[in-house]
Design a protein around this nucleic acid. Structure first.
Lengths: 153, 153
DNA sequence: TATGAAAAACCACGATG
DNA sequence: CATCGTGGTTTTTCATA
């Protein structure tokens, strides 16, 4: 399941997590390696699925998703049919950027991105139309002290 | 604050959010534009900060962060000195990938990535050594139904 | 280290709505 | 008159011998 990383691999990944536009030369230097050796390692980690992909990150406010909401979902009915509906809703609704099943009786946390509070309300209505939910509580994010895609290495 | 996006911009961003390795030609085709026009728009959006950066995404399990934890933090002492300590801890600890101040009396949600439960305990000790916290409750993620960096456009 | 192929980065002009 | 498309040049980076 997990790939055996050494310090050099970690340096390569750390640099790429921060900025994937680095040229092979710059990356190799950051890792303390020759350009070629660095390229081979990167390629290997891509093949092994350690590197999942390359994406651009957008500024949420500038694309009209200024509001982030954590939605705690509790449900009494945890049968297969419900699960299916829930999965479908999560897949369909692009406002849901994270859906996490938690420890402690069927309990989900949703991370939701919308423009503002009215937009959240509209989202909420879409959600409950797709899945019967017994207990929902939304908490709005006032400020992000940190919000990164960089994993600790 | 927010950039005025049209449908073509949205198509460009949607494609890049999914895969930033697309060549200009492929991206232009996805957007229904010539290569150059597409490049001009992309550059503009980079300049405006709509595109924040390009990064690689890693597989958490394969780099030894299989466990994701949501930590709810409540504090009674919300003075400036405390805030400073908290900010510092958030900055210093790489296991914290998200720190969000929430609505409803000083309340934080931390998103934390660690290897396993013992690693979470070690993180917890580091955290409370850095900041006095009156009330912490951790919820462990059992399964991700969704976890994406793609914002709804 | 060298090298050929490919893509990106940029410029200028005329067309279009 | 913004923005498009075309077609060019120069530069960089890749990927491999």
């Amino acid at each position: 399941m997990n790939f055996n990383l050494d310090d050099i691999d970690r340096r390569i990944l750390a640099a790429l997590q921060r900025d994937a536009t680095l040229s092979m030369d710059a990356l190799a230097e950051a890792a303390g390696l020759s350009r070629n050796a660095c390229w081979r390692r990167m390629r290997q980690m891509e093949g092994a699925g350690v590197i999942r992909g390359r994406v651009v990150l957008l500024d949420p406010a500038k694309v009209g998703c200024a509001l982030q909401v954590f939605v705690m979902v509790r449900t009494s009915s945890h049968d297969a049919a419900w699960m299916e509906k829930f999965d479908r809703a999560v897949r369909i609704l692009p406002e849901i950027v994270g859906a996490h099943r938690m420890t402690g009786d069927l309990d989900y946390v949703l991370r939701v991105r919308v423009a503002d509070v009215p937009a959240y309300d509209a989202f909420y209505k879409k959600l409950i139309a797709l899945v019967p939910l017994s207990d929902i509580s939304a908490s709005f994010v006032m400020e992000d002290n940190k919000d990164t895609t960089e994993l600790p290495l």
